[in-house]
Nucleic acid binder design. Structure first.
Lengths: 211, 211
DNA sequence: AGCGGGGTTGAGCAATTGCTCAACTTTCGC
DNA sequence: GCGAAAGTTGAGCAATTGCTCAACCCCGCT
């Protein structure tokens, strides 16, 4: 009933889905237990029965997304004998695909990050495996320390990708594009790939003799 | 009394400053008119007297930041005869300096962006001049359309910079650094400069014969 | 048939919210 | 020194919030 309720088509799942939708529509502060319950078609007391508190609900929504993201990135990592550039392209594609398939996710993370330090530990716990994964994936080309370390590249890459999804809806109307459309995403995907190539070229130039 | 109250050291300014601080501490939803008034040392009715509504207050806080940011970037743009690389480095430095001097700003924007579409028009209004400025500054090296257009580069650059300030506090403890310290910022600054150089090199390679 | 427990319900409580209002004080032109 | 405007105050209203609780329903078990 608490912690991790069953999510097989029963009430807890409907509540979780409703919370997910509402978080994207009205933001974190706009969603109330009553609104979640109403959308899920259940009594609002059930929200606190299945998830212990409102915060527990939000944490569970987050958890679901981060698990999916990490799985998607790891699945795209592929074999180590593949050329790094091709691997990175696949990973970046997977990142973009996941964000496109779950457009609410970057918004949600953005909102929670800005909500104050109480949630930082929670977010850190989900970010840590992603960072470790990036450090492993970039171990061959990035120095362990300094301005070109994998952690900086990780922040840069994730910034380049997620900023499109968070700022895109704001900016795209300014140049008359549909930010949610597939054409705009394809263009952004090409841009990100180009950025990856340019940064890889820069890394190769920086340290011509790899390990 | 409304719209744009005088900000010369009287009550309206104290309210605005208090709101600014609180927005960063407890997030957008955590700040109430009473909390703002208490911190400012005034009666809470004054919040609605000087600013018409709670939203008006937040808008005014935002406005102050965006005006400062645009001024800082334009001041750093410099003369057109200077080499583009040097100009970009100066602009990027100014961007980083502004963010460092106003660490609450990226957080605030992040929170407001995630808060739902009601605030999007407001944010768009502030973002538009920044975008136009970027398109002007990059007119020589970026094509007007496609994946390398100035707008994509703008999102990329601002993502690389702001993500450090929003995600940094989350990630830095994972590698035992003080994200707010000057050493961490200097390292990030070097990283961003390196990114700028790498992307400029990529652009030069893409279109060897400029206008 | 009876029992017990997970699931569900509506009502409700205490706290907080944005905002209003009438009354009070201060400021300022005249 | 007068009167109007600007500024300030405490009280309070209507609505919403997270959350609790006692009662109920429904199911399998014996």
């Amino acid at each position: 009933m608490d912690g991790r309720p069953d999510l097989r088509n029963d009430t807890a799942r409907k509540i979780l889905d409703a919370a997910d939708e509402l978080l994207a529509e009205v933001g974190l502060d706009g969603v109330s237990a009553r609104s979640v319950a109403t959308r899920a078609g259940v009594n609002n007391a059930l929200v606190f029965y299945h998830f212990k508190s409102m915060r527990g609900l939000v944490e569970r929504v987050l958890e679901r997304y981060y698990e999916g993201q990490l799985a998607a990135l790891e699945a795209a990592t592929g074999a180590a004998d593949e050329p790094l550039r091709a691997r990175l392209h696949r990973v970046v594609d997977a990142y973009l695909d996941f964000m496109e398939a779950h457009r609410r996710f970057p918004r949600l993370v953005q909102g929670l990050t800005a909500m104050g330090p109480e949630l930082h530990d929670l977010l850190r716990g989900h970010l840590a495996p992603l960072l470790r994964w990036a450090e492993r994936a970039l171990a061959d080309v990035a120095p362990p320390e300094g301005p070109l370390a994998a952690r900086h590249l990780f922040i840069t890459f994730s910034g380049v990708i997620t900023t499109w999804f968070t700022q895109g809806p704001l900016l795209a109307p300014l140049w008359g594009d549909d930010p949610e459309g597939p054409a705009a995403l394809a263009e952004r995907r090409a841009h990100v790939r180009w950025v990856v190539d340019a940064l890889l070229a820069g890394l190769a130039r920086e340290e011509p003799a790899g390990t």
